[in-house]
């Protein structure tokens, strides 16, 4: 089981952002994406998660194996913490949410409505969703936003447990999670003008 990205080019609104991105991610590995704002980390992750088509290149080993988490957690404020998690578990064909609740210390909050949680607690709930999906590859976009130090540690532990169970993770983040991670700086892959045929290219 391995996620392999070969010579990938991605774009935003038809304009190429990154080109020639290649890496491989094996079971038990973490890869951290770095790069300045607007470098294309989010676009790259969305593309790997299958939300948008690559402009060029291949992604292998992503089909139906990715759990994706981005800035928005997709929580329903009218549902309780437990209901939110149980919903995502059911969508991914799983049933147990206990492990996820423990991993992110959510048991005390389980009957609270998601709308009454603080930003950090919401984030924890959003990340707990990853555990219930039971998917091997986590693709995470800035997962630690609005988490305090203790919660970051919880998150790092969850990632470690995921890796120990044979999973892998691709994380775009600016802080050091204390994980034994490979680092991929996306800045060198910034797309040059003529590197990729953008949709406007035909008009030049």
């Amino acid at each position: 089981m391995e996620l392999t990205v070969t010579d990938l080019a991605v774009g935003r609104g038809g304009v190429p952002v990154l080109a020639g991105v290649s890496f491989a991610l094996a079971a038990g590995e973490v890869l951290v994406l770095r790069g300045p704002n607007g470098a294309g980390k989010t676009t790259l992750l969305r593309c790997i998660a299958g939300l948008q088509e690559p402009m060029a290149g291949q992604i292998a080993g992503a089909e139906d194996r990715i759990a994706y988490a981005a800035h928005a957690d997709g929580l329903k404020s009218a549902l309780t913490v437990a209901e939110n998690l149980a919903f995502w578990a059911a969508v991914f064909g799983q049933s147990g949410i206990d492990q996820a609740m423990t991993a992110f210390d959510l048991h005390d909050l389980q009957d609270r409505r998601a709308g009454q949680l603080s930003a950090g607690q919401k984030r924890r709930l959003g990340l707990a969703r990853l555990v219930v999906t039971d998917r091997p590859v986590w693709v995470l976009d800035e997962p630690t936003v609005s988490l305090d130090a203790a919660s970051v540690a919880l998150f790092a532990d969850a990632v470690r447990a995921h890796l120990a169970a044979g999973g892998a993770a691709l994380i775009a983040t600016h802080i050091d999670l204390g994980l034994d991670a490979g680092v991929l700086d996306v800045a060198p892959f910034r797309a040059r003008v003529d590197a990729v045929r953008s949709s406007d290219e035909a008009f030049l």
Binding site: V15, V193, S198, D200, E201, F203, L204
Partner: peptide, 17 residues
């Protein structure tokens, strides 16, 4: 319409240069 798109493409290219 083609000229509008062409202008857009040119601006995008200049912007990146």
């Amino acid at each position: 319409e083609i000229r509008v798109r062409r202008t857009r493409a040119l601006i995008a290219r200049e912007g990146k240069l």
